[in-house]
């Protein structure tokens, strides 16, 4: 079970899962494109999904990969409901797919469910990914990295 599902109260988990269905992609299958409508989202059950962005002259660059247990997509939560990045399957990927509009409607319908889901996505997905992105901005392994873990550059 993914951290997100494990974190939900039992009735909320049932409510969410009732809106989900199993899907699978073959290796290399494109799941969504940058700028496309964010009308679904997924919980990855197995396999790896690459988030990418196309840079003219440099090709399609992978900025992050998501693996087992992770939430694929959160642009569906906020307007304008458009994907900020593209996603492609790396190897065979199994996932649970949710219809974004249906889940949003359920969140509006039962604010306690909506709040819990939003909190879990904030704490388990949005926050860590923001932190990871900031950490990578530091380019910690770059330039003046140390010689072997105990001392300085000499």
């Amino acid at each position: 079970m993914t951290a997100l599902l494990a974190g939900l109260a039992a009735d909320h988990r049932d409510r969410l899962l009732a809106l989900g269905r199993d899907v699978a992609w073959a290796d290399g299958a494109r799941i969504f494109e940058e700028g496309g409508p964010a009308d679904r989202f997924w919980l990855v059950r197995s396999g790896l999904v690459a988030l990418d962005v196309h840079v003219p002259g440099r090709g399609t660059l992978v900025v992050e990969t998501l693996g087992e247990g992770e939430l694929l997509g959160w642009s569906w939560l906020f307007e304008p409901y458009r994907w900020q990045l593209g996603a492609v399957a790396r190897g065979v990927v199994d996932a649970i797919e949710f219809d974004a509009a249906a889940v949003r409607a359920a969140m509006d319908d039962e604010p306690a469910f909506g709040l819990e889901l939003l909190r879990l996505i904030g704490a388990g997905t949005i926050g860590p990914r923001l932190h990871a992105a900031r950490t990578r901005l530091l380019d910690l392994y770059g330039g003046g990295q140390d010689t072997a873990g105990t001392g300085p550059a000499r």
């Binding site: 330039g143 003046g144 990295q145 140390d146 010689t147 300085p152 550059a153």
Partner: peptide
């Protein structure tokens, strides 16, 4: 002296 700027440094400075 520990007042020297380079007294303790990491590769980053």
């Amino acid at each position: 002296s520990c007042f020297d700027l380079e007294f303790t440094h990491l590769p980053t400075g």
